[in-house]
Design a protein around this nucleic acid. Structure first.
Lengths: 117, 117
DNA sequence: CAAAATGAGTACTAAGTAGTACACAGTACC
DNA sequence: GGTACTGTGTACTACTTAGTACTCATTTTG
């Protein structure tokens, strides 16, 4: 699997090619951390930052929050809250869907979206 | 909301009424912690223990793991792994199901179980 | 070439996590 | 009436999390 830091570095370097707004320093400032820290995060010298910083990074770099969080080994706290509200229900559902292929899960998503509940 | 410690204490005291196997000391030994620590956990003097100890507690006290974990503000790590494997898919599904009533979610669970995917 | 910006190295830290170890007073048993 | 078990108070600790602060050597740019 690709690391979180590597992904951030790739995203940032792509953007920095045609804008001076995406140096380590600028991005670090935008998300509210020290440049040296972001540098270390990108080189994976330190573990990924907190959820708040990861979400800020996703916004700045135009990436998907949930994907970046997953690369960092985390799950968005709003999802956790939803599960914690009804632990038995969601635990059973998620464990069942573990073995199902993407298209099957996607079908359910659509069903919920369009369905007349 | 009822706290995690209170729930543990209730479960344990109920069991200890007709068996000497459920004193703080005995249960603490069964799950591999010091009695003083379990006592503090039950009185909520300290935050809930780690996932491993909570699952051990659930087994010893005959409670649902996911419910106890939820009371402790946690979500089972096996569920987290499933979500992290396909973050976009599961994030969308779970957020959609947030607003749905229990019976709707249950219907989906049964559909997955019985359906010919 | 001088000034500014770039990424990176080192050292440190405050707060939280997950407990242990020991001691002690009250109660129950027989 | 001593032994043994009950729950609990106090003190301490190792590890992890999530960073800051300062420094420095190299580009890059005007």
């Amino acid at each position: 699997m690709k690391g979180f830091g590597t992904e951030i570095r790739n995203l940032r370097e792509r953007l920095s090619k045609d804008s001076k707004e995406f140096s380590v320093r600028r991005v670090a400032a935008k998300i509210g951390v020290e440049p040296a820290y972001l540098s270390k995060v990108e080189r994976e010298v330190v573990p990924p930052p907190s959820e708040v910083k990861i979400i800020a990074l996703a916004k700045v770099l135009g990436a998907d929050e949930d994907v970046l969080l997953a690369l960092a080994g985390k799950v968005s706290s709003d999802l956790l809250c939803i599960i914690k509200d009804r632990p038995i229900l969601f635990a059973e559902l998620i464990r069942k869907l573990k073995e199902e292929p993407d298209h099957a899960v996607l079908r359910i998503v659509r069903e919920v979206k369009d369905g007349d509940w």
